[in-house]
Design a protein around this nucleic acid. Structure first.
Length: 545
DNA sequence: ACGATCACGC
DNA sequence: CAGTTACGTGATCGTG
């Protein structure tokens, strides 16, 4: 098909071949089995074919069976599950500069390679399918992960519009300020050097200017120059740390967001098309790349400004719907703790309530600073944080931090119970699971080294929470996508950012689409606490958030 | 090509 | 086996 290697015989041309295959590829009654079906769907989509009947994706099956594996490629799966060494793409196409386009690969080799690919995928289905059944993961695999493929595909194909001139102008403004700061830094340093090189910067700060070394990097023990260090150094009578902080912020935003996003946007439509990866995060979360649209800035002033460049098409608005405190609610559910559950049922401010309870004060005595402490503890607990990190985080002494944590476990007995149970189960079984039976193996849970074991214990605590949140939003996405299509909406889901969904909504659906979205996000599954969704509409992502 | 550092998100 | 908060991606530098 469409082969061009020398001496290739007369054959059915690409367009004719696709025309002949189209009815089969688009027939949902004809089951499709393969590796990375979303990618295959995109390839066919480029030729006007809508691949249907996606039955079994071997890459995703492997991920559901063991999401902690770093590889789910076909060569690895063949070796791991079939004990079979498959021909690699490199072996037929070459590598580096000499790499051939597949259509130029020798016909004999190319056909053998292609057939092997299909054969291996089919044989893997048997093995992986059996394992999914054994692990009671068929529901999760078929009804969640497989069902999510067409949803993600539509989101990727649709893309989100950006305001390119807006980003370009912002980039220019940043450039001018960066030039200015650069000059000042050189003046203060008394020398010119590469500010973007932590190594060269370290030499200037700590050797030449003799600033105190507050921290070393973990791997190489070099002098650290990260934000925390620079912030502390900014208290000293030197101008350079403040200048560097500003420089870092601006150059990060310019290089990672402004300049790269403009380059990646479609020149005709001005839309950005990310890839959602379904087999990367060990907890069950999605990830996003090329570009990553799950780490668009929101905190700093300039960062937030970048969100104004994510816009709705004419005649539409962006709608952001995010789960309020979803991980803490799941945590409350798991803990079964009465006080915790009541707080959410009564729609109280959870951090205020936590502050009141662990500090034994009335709710009216909870100052913003006390609330901040409670908030850090609430999040720290679900990440398995210890007193050391908490005291550092909050700038309080070690003893106080320790007391807060013990007061927390004292007050919320269910939390302590959850912690003990989940770690105990992990030790016994070697894995933890989410509410929907997504499994993650923790081979180091019984490790003799305390540090390594603690790391596994933190994963044991966090994974059921983060993973259940991932399961819930995936199920909501599937239902919303299905209903929008079935009920003839023109509103489209564009992005998922772990606990948030972003939609593009035509003006005449502003009254109807949000109701559907809220109902599917909040009502999909009954926990011991209600799920709450916050929604906002705007002309751009900043206004909508 | 790859590891290290840094910085952005949840 | 690594140095005490889970999970990611990407730009850039420096080295091989």
């Amino acid at each position: 098909l469409a082969h061009t290697c020398p001496g290739f015989p007369e054959h059915v041309g690409r367009d004719r071949a696709l025309e002949l295959l189209k009815p089969v590829l688009e027939d949902k009654a004809v089951a499709k089995v393969g590796q990375n079906l979303k990618f295959q769907s995109i390839v066919f989509n480029n030729r006007g074919i809508e691949l249907a009947g996606l039955r079994f994706d071997t890459m995703i099956a492997s991920y559901v069976i063991n999401p902690g594996l770093k590889q789910h490629d076909l060569n690895f799966l063949a070796q791991h599950y079939l004990n079979l060494r498959k021909t690699t793409f490199e072996e037929v196409a070459g590598k580096g500069k000499g790499r051939k386009c597949f259509s130029d690969v020798d016909l004999e080799q190319a056909s053998k390679y292609s057939c092997e690919d299909a054969d291996v995928a089919l044989r893997l289905m048997e093995v992986l399918g059996k394992q999914l059944r054994e692990d009671e993961n068929e529901e999760l695999f078929y009804n969640v992960e497989m069902a999510l493929i067409p949803v993600l595909l539509d989101m990727e194909i649709t893309g989100i519009k950006i305001d390119k001139p807006f980003f370009s102008e912002m980039s220019e403004t940043f450039s001018r300020e960066l030039d200015q700061i650069e000059k000042e830094i050189y003046l203060e340093a008394g020398t010119e050097f590469n500010i973007n090189s932590p190594q060269q910067l370290g030499t200037v700060l700590f050797d030449k200017l003799q600033l105190p070394i507050l921290k070393r990097t973990s791997k190489t023990k070099a002098h650290s120059t990260d934000v925390k260090v620079l912030t502390k150094l900014a208290a000293l009578p030197f101008k350079i740390p403040k200048l560097l902080l500003r420089y870092r912020t601006l150059s990060k935003l310019k290089a990672t967001y402004l300049d790269s996003l403009v380059k990646l946007a479609d020149p005709v439509t001005g839309r950005l098309h990310t890839s959602f990866n379904q087999t990367v995060a060990a907890t069950g979360r999605l990830s996003s790349s090329n570009p990553n649209l799950q780490n668009i800035p929101i905190r700093g002033e300039e960062g937030r400004e970048i969100r104004r460049g994510f816009v709705a098409e004419d005649g539409c608005r962006l709608l952001s719907a995010d789960y309020s405190q979803v991980e803490l609610r799941i945590f409350a559910h798991y803990s079964g703790d009465d006080a915790f559950i009541e707080a959410f049922r009564e729609q109280e401010d959870i951090h205020t309530r936590t502050a009141a309870e662990i500090m034994s004060i009335g709710r009216e005595e909870v100052t913003p600073d006390r609330r901040r402490i409670a908030k850090a503890i609430n999040f720290g607990i679900i990440y398995g944080m210890g007193p050391h990190k908490l005291s550092e985080e909050l700038g309080i002494d070690h003893e106080t931090a320790k007391n807060y944590i013990s007061a927390y476990y004292e007050r919320y007995r269910g939390v302590a119970r959850y912690r003990d149970e989940v770690i105990g189960a992990a030790r016994e079984k070697g894995y933890v699971t989410t509410l929907f039976n997504r499994r993650r193996y923790l081979p180091d849970i019984n490790h003799k080294n305390r540090i390594i074991r603690s790391e596994a214990e933190r994963m044991a605590i966090n994974t059921p929470i983060q993973g259940t949140a991932a399961d819930l939003i995936k199920m909501a996405m599937i239902r919303i996508h299905g209903r929008l299509k079935k009920e003839g909406f023109r509103s489209r889901m564009l992005l998922q950012v772990h606990d948030e969904l972003v939609f593009e909504v035509p003006e005449d659906e502003i009254d109807t689409a949000p109701k559907l979205i809220r109902s599917e996000m909040e009502g999909g599954f009954q926990l011991k606490v209600p799920l709450k969704v916050d929604m906002k509409i705007g002309r751009n992502w900043d206004e909508a958030h």
